[in-house]
Design a protein around this nucleic acid. Structure first.
Lengths: 166, 166
DNA sequence: TTACCTGCAAAGTATTTGCGCGTTC
DNA sequence: GAACGCGCAAATACTTTGCAGGTAA
């Protein structure tokens, strides 16, 4: 990442934090900077290892807490999973998933069910040439995120209370 | 799941195991059956809880080992993640991912980069009516799985040895 | 000054592993 | 009978939490 762009992003980050009422600490600044600089979507530990070089006293717990704070504030996104633990599916053929963001329930969706069929071959999906050259793409899956019927009903009865909801 | 279909699937499973040289134990049979019966893509623990009702002496470790074995044999698929630990991304806008199945490296792909643009609204993607009614879909992400350039090179130099590769 | 944030250490949860006994083939 | 698979318990990995002292605003 170019130095000027990095500076620009860091500046935007500072402002965003201010708006959100988040204190600007060197830990937060360096964690965010590491996230911008480390390619490939680092894990909390990977970020910790990077930040530690500059601030040896930082703790892994702080990195976890901070990333969680950032995510809840919409400053970063968690690549992962809608569900953190392993989940298995007896279906091994190419298919997509509907995941409930509330209860983590997962439903399968057969590609044939799509009324606007998509090509099976990921290359035909419009991946730019350059990316295909770098990345030998073998397969793709669409993950639809939403709220299932049961959860919608439950939420309607007992909606999220307080002003906490971002 | 209808009883007849279940029986049919179990039969196919037995045959598949035989072909693969996997011993047929009641643990494996009941774990696979639970996977077919429990909706929503159960976790190892959820499967354990189900199987335990019938075979109280089964251990959770066996469930883990068995599911792993099944996955490596192509009998089941892991819904999750290409990477088990948390991974963060500074980008919060709607975007897709390219994930290297070897090193777990993740790259972002902007929807605009697709030469064949897809609608932003997941409903326009051809989700069948019925599913939309049940599931209030808010968003979708495409995950392209493949092997990155660095890993391709590495594999070319030191290809997977032995007959283990399925 | 005061509320917010950090580091530490301990706890919690998820998953893996080594090993001796039991079962399948 | 030999190879394979199982249950147990301990180990490991990842993540969260409570609290006392430190820091930003």
């Amino acid at each position: 990442m170019k130095k000027s762009l990095l500076g620009q992003r860091m500046k935007a980050f500072r402002e965003r934090c201010k708006d959100l009422g988040l204190s600007l600490t060197y830990q937060r600044l360096s964690i965010y900077k590491a996230l911008l600089q480390v390619p490939g979507h680092p894990s909390p530990d990977a970020i910790y290892q990077v930040v530690r070089k500059t601030y040896p006293s930082i703790s892994l717990a702080t990195v976890y807490k901070t990333l969680d704070r950032f995510e809840k504030s919409g400053l970063v996104s968690k690549v992962n999973p809608l569900h953190e633990t392993a989940r298995y599916d007896p279906k091994v053929e190419h298919h997509h998933h509907l995941v409930c963001t509330e209860c983590k329930h997962v439903e399968d969706l057969d590609p044939q069910e799509l009324t606007r069929p998509l090509p099976l071959d990921p290359r035909s999906l419009g991946l730019p040439e350059g990316r295909c050259r770098d990345f030998d793409v073998a397969d793709y899956t669409i993950t639809f995120k939403g709220v299932c019927q049961a959860c919608r009903r439950r939420l309607a009865r007992a909606p999220r209370t307080g002003a906490g909801a971002a």
